[in-house]
Structure formats: structure tokens, C-alpha cells
Amino acid sequence: MKKNSFREGQYMVIPENPVSMFLFNSVYSAWIWLALRLYLGYTWFTAGIKKLSSGTWTGENAGAGLEGFVKGALAKAEGGDDVTGWYATFLENVVLPNSKVFAHMVAFGETLVGLGLILGLLTGIAAFFGGLMNVSFLFAGSISVNPILFILAILIVLAWKVAGWYGLDRWALPLLGTPWTRSSRETKEQTTHI
């Protein structure tokens, strides 16, 4: 067994390299995540607010904006461009008939993801759902900034422990019972029972 690895319970634990240790585990990297989080949060929040304030996603003509988006994606699928068949089937049979519900989910989801990222509250969860929406837009053939936003969301998900340090996660995560707030005895007991 190498000097840098050790056994904990029945698993061999290999220490992290210094770069990923700094980026994903050190509060000293939290300022990097703050900048990325604020950019991503602002992008999601403004997109959500625009949808909430327009009458085509919510309000009088709820779902009209989403219907237009879905019909555009279906046209791309028919032309053999950018949209795979299985996703076109999902859009046509699930999303389109329920466009009002999905339009509200998108508009409120974008707004809540943006707020979560800006406030640093449940940052990893907010970034995950933002990334899920990015992937949905990509599957529907909407490229624009979605690849960049998806990559940033994945990075923030990986850095969930420190990404919200300059935000409400600094206090919320310990209250919710994150793994590092357990006593060392509880952690050792759980490791040996796995």
C-alpha cells in the first residue's frame, strides 16, 4: 500500500490532488465560486423574471411561449437537425399537451435557480436544476449560451461544499445536517457498517 493512501473501513481512500482539494474543498476558493455563482444566478434570474412578466409563459396566454419553442424544436427534428427522435417524441406527447404547466415550471424554475445561486442558498441543488434545464434546452436544439451555462453549473455542483460559503449556505448547510457536522464517532460508526 502506498504511503499517500490509507484504509478506512473496507474501502481504500485515495487523497485528492492539491488543485481539486483547493477548488472543491477549501473555503479559500469560495471567492471564485462566488463570481461564477453570481454570473450564473443573474443569468437564470433575469431569464425567469422576463418569462414571469411576459404574458406568453405565465399570465393570460400562459404556455404560448413554450408552445412556440417546442414547435420550433419539432420542426428541427423533422428536418433531421439538432433534435433527436426520442426527445422530439417527449416534447410532442408530454410537453406540448401540458404546455401551461411546463411553462410555469420553466419560468418559476429559472427564477428560483437564479435566486438560489445569487443568495448562495442550497447552491449545489440550485446549480443541478439549472444544469438540468440547460440540458433540456440543448436537447431541444437551443444552443446559444447553454453549453457554457451547463459547464458552469456542473462545476458549481462539484464545489457545492464551498460554492455557497459567501452566501446563506455557510449557515444553512450546518443546520440541515451536512456530513461534516456529524460527530467523528458517528462518522466512524457509519463507515464500519457500510
Results as ranks from 00 to 15, higher is better:
135 V>A: 05
72 G>R: 06
79 G>T: 10
112 L>K: 01
32 I>Y: 06
70 V>N: 08
67 E>D: 08
191 T>G: 05
135 V>Y: 12
50 K>Q: 07
13 V>G: 06
12 M>S: 15
186 E>S: 15
54 S>A: 08
4 N>M: 08
101 V>Q: 10
60 E>H: 12
186 E>D: 13
54 S>W: 04
44 W>G: 00
21 M>S: 15
130 G>C: 03
66 L>D: 03
172 A>I: 13
141 G>Q: 04
133 M>D: 02
80 G>T: 10
142 S>E: 12
170 R>G: 01
23 L>G: 15
187 T>R: 14
178 T>P: 14
38 L>Q: 09
141 G>E: 10
187 T>C: 13
17 N>I: 05
156 I>T: 02
33 W>M: 09
21 M>I: 04
91 L>T: 03
36 L>Q: 05
115 L>P: 04
3 K>H: 15
110 E>L: 04
175 L>E: 04
61 N>Q: 03
147 P>T: 13
121 L>Q: 05
134 N>A: 05
151 I>D: 04
12 M>L: 15
125 I>A: 12
97 P>Y: 11
181 T>C: 07
59 G>H: 08
81 D>K: 01
9 G>V: 12
39 Y>Q: 05
23 L>F: 14
132 L>N: 06
19 V>S: 10
168 L>F: 08
113 V>F: 01
69 F>R: 02
8 E>T: 05
66 L>M: 12
55 G>I: 04
176 L>C: 09
126 A>E: 00
194 I>P: 08
6 F>D: 00
2 K>N: 03
4 N>A: 10
160 W>H: 11
131 G>I: 06
15 P>K: 15
176 L>P: 08
189 E>L: 08
120 G>T: 10
95 V>S: 09
45 F>Y: 02
190 Q>N: 11
9 G>P: 12
82 D>N: 02
9 G>L: 07
41 G>N: 00
93 N>P: 08
179 P>Y: 14
126 A>T: 01
100 K>R: 13
165 W>Q: 05
14 I>L: 07
32 I>K: 08
56 T>D: 07
152 L>V: 02
147 P>C: 14
88 A>E: 01
68 G>R: 15
81 D>S: 09
184 S>L: 14
45 F>N: 00
146 N>A: 13
194 I>S: 11
158 L>K: 11
48 G>H: 00
78 E>G: 14
1 M>D: 05
45 F>C: 01
192 T>V: 13
58 T>W: 10
29 S>W: 06
116 G>C: 05
136 S>P: 03
181 T>W: 03
60 E>C: 02
42 Y>S: 02
109 G>T: 03
105 M>Q: 11
154 I>K: 02
86 W>Q: 06
15 P>W: 11
122 L>E: 08
117 L>T: 02
116 G>T: 03
82 D>T: 03
116 G>K: 03
120 G>N: 13
115 L>F: 10
115 L>S: 07
147 P>D: 07
194 I>N: 11
47 A>D: 00
165 W>D: 04
106 V>L: 04
